[in-house]
Amino acid sequence: MDDLVLEIQGLRKSYKKQCVLQHVNLQVQHSSICALLGPNGSGKTTLLKIILGLIYPTSYILFKNIDKEDIRYMPQHPNFPPNIKVSELLSLIQSLKKQKGEDLEELIYTFSVESFLDKCIRELSGGMKQRVNIVQAFMFPGYLYLLDEPTMGLDPHVAFLFKNLLRRKRDQGAAILFTSHIMSEVEQLADELVLMIEGYVYMQSDPQTIITEGDAMNLEQALHHYWIAKVD
């Protein structure tokens, strides 16, 4: 139990007409990278937002072994305000957090953000914005990282650096929960895989097991097998 950062049981979220999350059970452990997989509309983002407290669930049992202050979030489309500079954005976040970003300078260096620190957000490309997004999420140390499609729009080199960052965070003891579409990425990174379909957690296991059990070459193929089996 002490290893758990987060445990969710029987989570339901329904809007007036449709049920987004039917019945979700999920456990996230320290020092692990957990991937949330699933087709569009399967409730991944909603799940992340519920953990953050942005969305109020209909019914749930939620254990958080950590303080709200220790959760970091990287949204999918952050839509930073267009008219302020990157540096101003970062200092805004620091002053709201009331502490200095410990890893700020290192991150700026690693993800080569300094070249556009003095530019306004609206002048940035999608990849640049995503790099800013990474910096804002990782500048303070945290125990639980919630990342919504974090590698979207990153060039391969930056994506590589980013994955290294994630591994290092894991090795330092943090838990990382991220959503993704890219199977190879999940296969490389994840210690744990959660497959969500239509508001259910369909499967929670580690990728290697899935591949072996599915008698497949890789994760993609294994999931394909699962998918066909489910439809049948």
Binding site: L54, K68, E69, R72, P75, H77, P78, N79, F80
Partner: peptide
């Protein structure tokens, strides 16, 4: 309305 997605970042800080 336009700044709604950015509010997520702020709320997650948390604010």
């Amino acid at each position: 309305v336009e700044n709604m997605p950015f509010q997520e970042v702020l709320l997650a800080i948390p604010t």
